[in-house]
Design a protein around this nucleic acid. Structure first.
Lengths: 109, 109
DNA sequence: CACCAGACTTACAAAAAAGTAAGTACTTCC
DNA sequence: GGAAGTACTTACTTTTTTGTAAGTCTGGTG
């Protein structure tokens, strides 16, 4: 009989708490290939509202997954990027994306 | 300059649509080590309500991720298990769980 | 014949997440 | 001095998701 790992439940729930919701994984997906400005993210994810974008970025910042970098330009430019720790999410992100790709193929044909 | 993959967005969103929400990944986590009856799942995830459990199982069934197997016992027993296709989610589930574990370690100390 | 188990089902309510729309602050350009 | 760009902020509404509580059906068992 397989050994049960009750903690597995807790671990999955933890990830869900930190990365769950409609936007976070999407935002992180775009930060994967380098730092992005607020307005760039808005352009890359056109359906997101500014409110949601900031709200989610703030939460990711609080969880030390992304850095917020204010450049003292005029007008001010703010860049968001993965923290070193945040990069540990990439191995989660990638299979998740591939699965979506396969699932799309499967369902649209 | 990095090539942009606009589809990545769509793929991530697809996965989110199919596996998003509070319970699905958790249910799948438990099915990973073999078929489980409705009541077993309830016991393994005590915080879930029967309504949510069935609702999510039905959606997973519709998406061909889990099988529903009625045994003609009395009282009736219904077993849920991964479909062959559903098993393709395991490589998504595992990094997700490991990440949660690391994140927990990091935040609770 | 009342009661139990098991797997649901339903109507309704509450909570959480997301969206709308408008406004702020700063500064440069016309 | 008005418009425009950038990065927000706020009050409020809507939508979506989740939860509560009770009921259904079936066929044993005491």
């Amino acid at each position: 009989m397989a050994v049960e790992h009750p903690e597995g439940t807790v671990f999955v729930q933890t990830t869900l708490k930190v990365l769950g919701g409609k936007w976070k994984l999407l935002i992180l997906w775009h930060l994967k290939d380098g730092a992005k400005r607020f307005s760039e993210l808005k352009r890359l994810i056109p359906e997101i509202t500014e409110k949601m974008l900031i709200q989610q970025l703030r939460e990711l910042e609080k969880d030390e997954i992304v850095n917020r970098n204010v450049q003292s330009d005029i007008p001010p430019r703010v860049e968001y990027s993965f923290t070193a720790y945040g990069r540990s999410i990439i191995p989660v992100l990638e299979p998740l994306c591939s699965w979506g790709q396969e699932h799309l193929k499967r369902t649209e044909c």
